[in-house]
Amino acid sequence: MPPRKKLTQPTIKGAASELAGLPLGPGRAKLHAETLEGLVSEIARLRDLPLKEVEPAFIYRPIEPRARRSK
C-alpha cells in the first residue's frame, strides 16, 4: 500500500461536508486537520499488523422474536 499523505484542510473540509454532512468553517477545519494528523498516523499503523487471519472482535447475535404474551 502506498504511504499515506499528510492530511490537509481542503481534505478535511471536503470530507466533513461531502461525506459526513457536517460542513466546517475554516478555523475548525484547521483544528481538525492538526489534531487528526497525529491520531491518524498512529491508527494507520494498525494496517501493518499481522491481522490477515484475525477476525474482528465482535459477534453478531441473531435476535429472536419476542415470545407472545399470554392473555
Binding site: 478535511i12 470530507a15 466533513a16 461525506l19 459526513a20 457536517l22 481538525h32 487528526l36 491518524v40 491508527i43 494507520a44 494498525l46 494496517r47 499488523l49 499481522p50 491481522l51 484475525v54 477476525e55 474482528p56 472482535a57 465482535f58
Partner: peptide, 17 residues
Amino acid sequence: NYVPAKDYLHAQRFRTL
C-alpha cells in the same frame, strides 16, 4: 467522522490479537 471503516475493523481485529 474521518476514520475509515476499515481502520475501525482493523482495531477490532487488533482486539482479538
